[in-house]
């Protein structure tokens, strides 16, 4: 059972990493509007499919 002397500190390390990622996400305003983020996955998928045909040519002249 002495393995717990190694494993539990490792688990705590993961907890610390998880918490710092969460803190970063809060600071990056990712929790400001949860409704919108839920939708973004739908739109992004669609955009990748159509970007090659519709969007890229539009972007180019602007740059």
């Amino acid at each position: 059972m002495s393995i717990i002397y190694v494993l539990i500190p490792i688990a705590i390390l993961f907890v610390i990493i998880g918490l710092s990622v969460f803190f970063w996400a809060v600071r990056a305003r990712q929790f400001d509007d949860l409704d919108k983020e839920g939708f973004s996955i739908l739109f992004d998928e669609e955009r990748k499919a159509s970007s090659k045909t519709a969007e890229k040519p539009e972007d180019k002249p602007g740059q």
């Binding site: 688990a11 705590i12 907890v15 998880g18 918490l19 969460f22 803190f23 809060v26 600071r27 929790f31």
Partner: peptide, 17 residues
């Protein structure tokens, strides 16, 4: 509100552990 969210996360995750 952001502070609340962080405190909630700390309390929640630590509770699980």
């Amino acid at each position: 509100l952001n502070r609340f969210l962080k405190r909630l996360a700390v309390a929640g995750i630590m509770t699980m552990q």
